[in-house]
Amino acid sequence: MFKDIVEFIQKIYQTKDFISLHEPKFVGKEKEYIEKCIESTFVSSVGIFVNKLEIKIAKYTGAKYAISTTNGTSALHISLLLAGVDEDCEVITQPLTFIATCNAINYCKAKPVFVDVDRDTMGLSPSALEFFLKNNTKVKNKKCINIKTNKIIKACVPMHSYGHPCKIDKIKTICNKYNIFLIEDAAESLGSFYKNKHTGTFGQIGTLSFNGNKIITAGGGGCIITNDKSLAVKAKHLTTTAKIPHKWDFNHDMIGYNYRMPNLNAALLIAQLEKLNNFIKNKRKLANDYEKFFKSIDYFFFKEPKFSRSNYWLNVILLKNKKQRDKFLDYTNKNGVMTRPAWKLMNKIKMFKDCHQLDLKNANYLEERIVNIPSSVRF
């Protein structure tokens, strides 16, 4: 059976050479824009391409403001700072996520709290979130307090896993009820919509990533999106070393960060953004081909959740158990087809194993079964 899967993937990618998990495609005006950027001599964090990119990202997502950053992790870090997260705080997130989420929380000297995911979205479960808050917290002076640790639960960071939207509207309602700042980790879901609204625009802040393996890339890069002008202004200030604008003088009014995206990266990314809708159309066709094939051999292919339109960043199949998953990973990678398991759950990583957590049965179930299969755009 594994042999049939490898042969099918080779067929749809029309090659028997090595097939990567997700490679970038540069098929637009990338070289043209990069040359213009070089000719302008503005290749660092100031330039017209950075400004244009932020306008275009805001327009595409429907957010009022976009602030470009060096990568998705820095976007998360700044977002948490904007939420007021510090050493006296905890941040609710899901255990099934890339480690950048928890690293950013730790940069603020805070601790993550792990709440289970839903099997039908692979994202943070609203019912698990509400159960945790109802049984482990109290609201006092408009602050949500963890009664077991006496820490303030300042923020919640759900992720739209592999490009599939979680039930973000329900999560937003719960966060509002408990006065928790909502930051959407939309690093993987550019071009994904939930109830006709772009991911990352439900919470006070959303974050994007343009890493080399994302649906569009600048080799790196990230972005903060928000509808709150004051948050946008402060985000831009913090990411530009908190420098007070002046024609020549150097003065700074708080601890800032050198997190602005270079103009050179922005030039590349604008060309990528121009192709995004074509990429998504191509990837959705690939997902449809996978769905039909895996249905014919009785394998579970993960489809976009209800009310969602996913970008299908990485296609996901679920194996029957961990043993079968491991055999599949071994066979495919030995036969030139790159496949990968889910990330190791964050609560199992030594830096975070002592953090507050509840029953994570769905996250454990998915971790043992998830396999990502080749998902590159086909041209």
Results as ranks from 00 to 15, higher is better:
F2R: 15
T15V: 09
K16F: 08
F18N: 12
L21G: 07
H22L: 09
E23T: 10
K25G: 05
K25R: 11
F26I: 03
F26V: 06
T41W: 08
T41K: 14
N51H: 12
K52Q: 14
I67P: 00
S68A: 11
N71V: 01
T73K: 14
L81C: 09
L82G: 01
E87C: 00
P95W: 06
P95C: 08
C102N: 07
F114Q: 00
V115C: 00
D118S: 13
D120R: 04
M122N: 04
L124T: 02
L133W: 00
K134A: 05
K138L: 08
K138I: 10
V139R: 05
K142E: 13
K142H: 12
K143R: 15
I145E: 12
I147N: 06
K151R: 13
K151Q: 10
I153F: 08
V157C: 10
P158I: 01
H164S: 06
P165T: 03
C166G: 06
K170T: 03
T173G: 08
C175R: 04
K177W: 04
F181E: 04
L182P: 03
S189A: 15
L190Q: 03
G191E: 04
N196K: 13
T199A: 09
T201N: 10
T207F: 01
I216M: 08
I216A: 05
A218D: 04
G219M: 00
N227S: 05
D228W: 00
K234L: 15
K236E: 12
A242N: 07
P245G: 02
W248E: 11
D249L: 11
D253Q: 12
Y259T: 09
M261S: 08
M261P: 05
P262G: 07
N265Y: 10
A267E: 01
L268H: 02
I270W: 00
I270C: 01
K275Q: 12
N278M: 10
N278F: 13
N278E: 14
I280D: 04
K283G: 03
R284G: 12
R284H: 14
K295M: 14
S296K: 15
S296L: 12
E304F: 13
E304S: 15
F307E: 15
F307D: 15
S308D: 14
N311P: 10
N311A: 10
Y312G: 10
W313D: 02
N315Y: 00
N315S: 05
L319K: 07
L319R: 05
D326Y: 06
Y331R: 04
N333G: 03
T339W: 12
K344V: 14
K350T: 08
M351K: 13
K353F: 14
L358D: 14
K361P: 06
L366E: 09
E367G: 12
S375I: 07
